[in-house]
Amino acid sequence: MNKLIRTEAKLTLREPIGMAFSLLLPLGIVLAFGLSGSASEADPELDGQVPLDTVLPSLALALSFGMLAVFMLPGFMADYRMRGILRRLSTTPVHPARLLAAQVVVQFVIALISVPLVLGLAIALGMNTPEQPLMALVVIVLGGAALFAVGTLVSAVAPDAKVGYVYSAAFFFPSLFFAGIWLPKEQMPDWLSRFGDFTPLGAFRESLENAFAGTGQDPLMLLTLAVTAVLASTIAARVFRWE
């Protein structure tokens, strides 16, 4: 299993564009918006929050976790299925599920690398250090589990890379909206904003923001993440096509 993980890590590093994009885009967002002075001031349109302390870093992390879990992971798995690598593995003593597990480990680790990068950059720009770092860690693990379970589900049901990409996009872009990336949640109608709290990406970003600001967690959002993780991975395990 270790050799499989090392091999997947090497292969990911040899195809660095997707990974670099997933790491650099969030940093770019923090940098572009964080440099403007208003990012460090309380914003009345965000109910008096300081964007650099809450919205910006949580949004950047939601982006990197989302891209790695929902695009990179299914992309690799669809390629492996199409090339017959999963079928090839099923004739060896190693079940192809191990390859999926190795991919999840590798992409999750890359996503975790984005945490110190994003927070480091934001803090360098004047972000207040997160109020509840431990809670932030819990949210990252829970949210990561939820998003990677969704990515696994896409890998399980997509017949090929193209359809997989459509499934990923159909999940990801509306999720971005509900996570408040196009329109700050504070400016959405209450019902819409509340609905977004129960989407995996929205719940992840919002809970992360709460941990950064130290405002306390909404247990329903954490439950959303846990339920997504369990439900999506259970369905994926049942329907995964290993050939």
């Binding site: 050799k3 091999t7 017959g84």
Partner: peptide, 21 residues
């Protein structure tokens, strides 16, 4: 069908499969 990732070297591929047995 060919069933290996393009970016894996010959030695890496055989070494990886060796670890399965």
């Amino acid at each position: 069908a060919s069933a290996l990732p393009d970016r894996l070297s010959v030695h890496e591929a055989l070494d990886l499969y060796a670890s399965f047995y």
